[in-house]
Write a protein that binds this DNA or RNA. Sequence first.
DNA 1: CATAGCCGCCTTTTT
DNA 2: GGCGGCTATG
Length: 729
Amino acid sequence: MMDNCETNPRTDSFLKQLTDSQRQAVCHVDGPLLIIAGPGSGKTRVITYRIAELIRAGVRPWNICAITFTNKAADEMRQRALALGASSSVHISTFHSLCVRILRQYSDSVQLANNFSIYDSKEQARCVKQAIKDCDLDSSNFAPARMHSAISTLKNNMEDVDSYEAEAIGFFPKSLAKIYRRYQTILGENNALDFDDLLMRTALLLRDNKQVRDQLSERFKYLLVDEYQDTNSAQYEIAKYIALSHGNICVTGDPDQSIYRWRGADIRNILIFEKDWPQAKVIKLQENFRSTPNILKIADKLIANNSKRKAKLLIPTRDAGQEVCVDAYEDETTEAMAVAEKINQLVDKGCQLRDIAIFYRVNSMSRVLEEAFIQNQLPYQIVRGVEFYGRKEIRDMLGYLKILVNPSDEVSLMRIINTPTRGIGKTTIGRVADYARVNRITLYQALTKVSQITTISNGPKAKISVFINMIEKFKASINKKVAELMEIVFEESGLKKSLSFVVDSDKDALENVNELINSAAKFDEQAEEALLIDFLQQISLFSDADAYDASNNRVALMTLHAAKGLEFKNVFIIGLEEGILPHERSSNGDDEELEEERRLFFVGITRAKDNLNISYAKYRTIRGQMLRSIPSQFLYELGIDFAESTIAAEPEASYSSGHSYDYSEFAKVEKVSKSKYAYIKNQLVRHKKFGLGRVESFKDMGENSIVTVRFNNGQVKSLMLKYANLTEP
DNA sequence: CATAGCCGCCTTTTT
DNA sequence: GGCGGCTATG
């Protein structure tokens, strides 16, 4: 392939808009390419242009595969690539969607029926619980959530049951291996995969089956991976195996924006790219076209506190812009009202609501904001797509549909067999289940043979027959348009009727199902061949971030994680408090996790184009309890910059709600020497409310020092030294 | 067998 | 604070 960009007038015009390094990244055709790109450097744009440029250089669209982090990003890239002259036969999707395609195509090779269900976290949790129970282990010693995440970690590291079992030594690992094995068996019986299976099984398939590997390399001759810093082992292997034979792999990413370590993402994947691919060409994109220098200064100062990183520049290209605001509020309600107030001011100045976003660490923080927005009559959208699919009525509807595609899916079957109630109770189901077990058939098959089950009397038998006939009738319509099928199911299952009965309070339920049907109708329109199974699998892989709709003019509320890849003119980041950001559970002991929290804040900051507001509350109600909070150590790390900017410059600029800025904590930041008290790990201390405890960690920040204590009642608390009044035991 | 109400427990982040 | 599971009652 050639390596120049000069001849085609159509592509020339867009290439001229790029910087030299961007153009290099776009036009370098063959061989491995690493694009290390800071925030706001236009890396997604580079990938998109690159797709068009590859095609211009003679690569067949069919042979190009681009991997994005979210479905949303894939959609956007697809549209832009099309506008640049690419064709729709370029494959653009997330790793997970790609894996579904591969596993369905090669289902024979992986001994899988290709109508498998994809279980979401709740369905997975259910299976884990069942597995623990089946292994006769006590769920108080083996907390389902912990086991679930342990299994997930194993899968992300490509440890399948056999390999883990072989190396498990000791009671706990051996028990985990047992649970893991049982969990996999349950999934298998349900003909279901969890999210991690999609990746692991694909990776193992590619590893172990040369023929499949060759076919996929042949198909995807050019591989592009965006957000490579957040790939886990399985994703890393998949990418490696696809590109192994031709080396045409282009990855982009920013180690400073790696925020999914807890999900198995390994930042080293991007750091060792050059070792994996010795011929790799490396291009750095350090110019930032998004944010003002004032914002970048803060971002830079923050991320400099991460020790395990390669220093990277953030080169501003814009004018200074406004100062970054750091505000202190009395409590979370005041904070929310103040944010709403500030947004009103922005709107008065002509700002569009779609140009405003609020980021927070945990979803529960959206509630207060929501109330404040309703009071202020500000249109907003909470970017939480999966929440919709978690609703009871939606899960019920999907339960019916999943059964039609995959009758082995017992979790779904159990969900809907008596929803709405049709007189098939626990004892009856138990008897059918027994029959199924004895005769080694699935629950569904047992239901179809209910007439042969002697333990069940005629009443329940008839009810089961009616149910099975209904499902079979639905099945006959499985090739109808998805929306049409859904209408039938909704109506004839009695779900619609049961929802209509509910008085007033839950009127939303009906509308939610209608919304689901609408989305199915949209799917029917867009898909070339609208199959129910595709619709269901698409929904299963839907993420929070995918729900963001930039076209409606509303303020966007989302977690910092969901903010990845987006940008807004005005950004608010709230809850800069110890225990929130950094979050309590990640700051316990582990530096790696603290650094990830810092990167998360970094990601949030660098989403802002013009105007950034950071805030914390002095008191915050957490799970019903009002607690005094401690300003985040990250604020401390930003140091004098914000003390001299907003806070010192205009302390009187407070809001009508009457609270004032609290800058005492930070005013003296630079001058502060070490605290005269120093606590050491494991030291015994006494707190007048929490009692006796041992020091877990001590962060010496002079006036603002934070001591984390594990109290004997089991609680771990981070306390601000000057308020804690710790005494000798 | 259905339902209401109460008790206990809790990944924060997500595909 | 909220959901899921268990129990008591109709």
